[in-house]
């Protein structure tokens, strides 16, 4: 079957434009597999012109590293778990995440996310306090990929502002649970709780299928309500 991929392209300082590629595939390939083959050799675009390799990030190709987050038909998700068969119209628009600065083509600068967890002082000062009743929730918290999909879809998140969205709340949860540091609760209020509008779009798009809403509710219970 022939699939049409419209790929958003952009050079540093340049204007965004789109390039169309036609690919033959059974539908079993993921968008990552297609991007990999387009970008690892000189490919022809739909006009038959040789295309510059597409710049994008990928690592594990199996949903474990979060590198390949991008917008696919408008939805932020991992390219490695977006399979062509999911698109019956066989036309797929591939764009970079929209809330982060574009480095080139589909690669964006997510360094702000990592910086934000540092600013919020998300670490343990003493030994982790482990409760078997909280084990599953802490495990889920630590599965966060830091891919940025939750921030991309969040109506309240804007880059360079104090609010760090679900990525902060999900990761803050286990620290709140495992330590007694009051400072984390203050950071949590300032950088998450005051601004979250509870749209919960983050919960719907999380590619790791984390129980985002549950983790936020648990984090709120500790940081805000002192439970």
């Amino acid at each position: 079957m022939e699939y049409t991929l419209d790929i958003a392209r952009q050079s540093p300082g340049g204007k965004p434009w789109r390039q169309t590629f036609l690919v033959e595939d059974s539908g079993e390939s993921s968008v990552s597999t297609i991007l990999d083959s387009i970008s690892s050799q000189v490919s022809l675009d739909a006009e038959g012109e040789p295309a510059e390799p597409v710049v994008w990030e990928c690592g594990c190709l199996q949903g474990k590293c979060g590198a390949c987050a991008m917008r696919i038909n408008g939805v932020p998700r991992l390219a490695c778990s977006a399979f062509l068969r999911e698109f019956p119209k066989r036309r797929i628009l591939v764009e970079p995440l929209g809330k982060f600065p574009v480095i080139k083509d589909l690669a964006v600068d997510r360094s702000g996310m990592f910086e934000s967890l540092k600013q919020a002082k998300l670490w343990l000062e003493g030994e982790a306090f482990n409760s078997k009743f909280r084990h599953d929730a802490c495990y889920q918290s630590a599965m966060c990929l830091m891919c940025g999909c939750c921030l991309d879809v969040c109506p309240n998140f804007m880059p360079d502002e104090e609010f760090f969205g679900a990525a902060l709340a999900v990761n803050a949860y286990r620290i709140l649970e495992q330590s007694e540091a009051k400072s984390i609760a203050l950071e949590y209020k300032k950088r998450y709780w005051h601004t979250c509008g509870k749209s919960l779009s983050c919960d719907k798009v999380c590619p790791a299928k984390l129980p985002v809403e549950e983790l936020m509710a648990r984090a709120n219970a500790i940081a805000i309500w002192g439970k």
């Binding site: 990030e57 690592g59 594990c60 199996q62 474990k64 590293c65 979060g66 590198a67 997510r110 360094s111 990592f114 990929l145 830091m146």
Partner: peptide
């Protein structure tokens, strides 16, 4: 890439 992308996570 950041540590979250390292093969160790696999």
């Amino acid at each position: 890439k950041p540590s979250e992308r390292a093969q160790s996570v696999m």
